[in-house]
Design a protein around this nucleic acid. Sequence first.
DNA 1: CTTGCGTAGTTGTATAGTACAACTCGAAGG
DNA 2: CCTTCGAGTTGTACTATACAACTACGCAAG
Lengths: 140, 140
Amino acid sequence: MPERAQSVDVIHAQLNLFARRVRALVNRLHPDLSFVAYTLLAHVHATGGCRAIDLAGYYLLDKSTVSRQVTDLERRGLLDRVVGPGRPTAQILRVTPAGQKKIEAAGRQQRTVLEERFADWSAADLSAFAGYLERFNDEG
Amino acid sequence: MPERAQSVDVIHAQLNLFARRVRALVNRLHPDLSFVAYTLLAHVHATGGCRAIDLAGYYLLDKSTVSRQVTDLERRGLLDRVVGPGRPTAQILRVTPAGQKKIEAAGRQQRTVLEERFADWSAADLSAFAGYLERFNDEG
DNA sequence: CTTGCGTAGTTGTATAGTACAACTCGAAGG
DNA sequence: CCTTCGAGTTGTACTATACAACTACGCAAG
């Protein structure tokens, strides 16, 4: 088996484990804001406001799933909707101040866990790993 | 913000996206063998036989969850159980020939998708990325 | 205008994955 | 013997999710 194929194989195996563990880990970390809810909220935050359908596209989710998640986040006061200027049928989602606090707290917590985990990695390795992850995701 | 913290930040953001997408991708890939079922089966295969509780530990799942998944895999003929010699209360799980076929087919399919995705990566980058993933997972 | 299409979103319904707690079953040791 | 322990199963409930059917609104073609 050529070298490339071997690497792909390892990546394949590790991805499965990885995806499972990250999800489980994050859900344990802050039970009041689920993995999914957090990621959606964080994306709205990162984009500075987007539509529900953008979230669906980004995370490969059905729009109904996003609709329910957003409804829940709004009900909890972490998100609000404004009618987009010019595009009346499109609601622009925005993170509320309460939502920002929540994101920051959850993010801090998660980063703390990650920092521990990476304690013995060199700065160069860390930055390389981050680069590879970005590259992989961007190409998707 | 120091360089390390920045990298951790990027990794943190990418991990969320990554975990979500991989799961969605894999589930679409072979609807007859779910992401979870596949990973459990693959682990039993990789270890050459293990107990249900080992799976739970490895994937951070509750034993009840594993119990149901295993029951389902057994019902479908992909897995069987043998009573462990000496430890009567422990069932050793083993992949059946049919299960092996399934794993291989699903694995082939997933690798094909991954190979496409990595088409423009150099062998060195691929191998480095694989190494980082392994390292990250091993430390968990 | 008005009809019909397209986009964004919601709701009905069904299913998988998961956790937690209560239980069973058999071993091993005092 | 009785207790405790480890592995597993079952009851129950909840979350995330998909798919399909529906609503609401604007826009363009007639």
